[in-house]
Amino acid sequence: MPPIPPLHADDPEGPAGPAGAGAFALTTLTMRADFLRAASARRQGTPGFLLQARQRRSDEAAGSGVRVGYTCSKKIGNAVVRNRAKRRLREIARAILPRAGQPGWDYVLVGRPGATVDREFAALRTDLDTALARIHGAPAA
């Protein structure tokens, strides 16, 4: 999978930061077993969503890139609301994980009822930055 291009052609920063610093492609989790392994690993709650993260073992497939999954239960709402919540989660992951995620890790973003759809988009981005910093042991900015 090729690297993710900037959101706008004239945006040198793009989702991966200045000049693609630390940029790598995101792979989407599709197998239930991967979601279950992430659910039993580290968790960090935020007002907008729950972040589950785990470092893959060296003998696992999928190389050293970042894999990400999204889940929203029926508690969030009907299909339209769930899909909107997942679109928002996908967009913050696309913007933040290439620069702040760690290669060799799996991340699952779990939507929260009411919050994921209604929370300001900038606040969701800040939530993901803060959650990643706490998961990886760095002080939150």
Rank of each mutant, 00 (worst) to 15 (best):
M1V: 15
L7P: 13
H8M: 13
A9H: 13
D11I: 03
E13C: 11
G14S: 08
G14R: 07
P18H: 05
G22N: 00
T28Q: 08
T28F: 08
L29H: 01
R37Y: 07
R37M: 13
A39D: 12
R43Q: 14
T46M: 01
T46I: 04
L51F: 00
A53I: 00
R54Q: 15
R54M: 11
R57S: 15
E60H: 00
A61G: 08
A62D: 14
G65R: 12
R67S: 12
T71Q: 15
K74T: 15
G77H: 07
A79F: 13
V81W: 05
R82H: 10
N83Q: 14
N83I: 08
K86H: 09
R87F: 11
R88F: 03
L89F: 03
R94P: 14
I96A: 11
A100I: 03
G101M: 00
Q102V: 05
D106I: 04
D106L: 08
L109I: 05
G111M: 14
P113G: 10
T116L: 00
F121C: 06
F121L: 11
R125L: 15
R125A: 15
L128A: 08
D129M: 10
T130K: 12
H136V: 03
A138S: 05
A140P: 04
A140R: 01
A140K: 01
A141W: 08
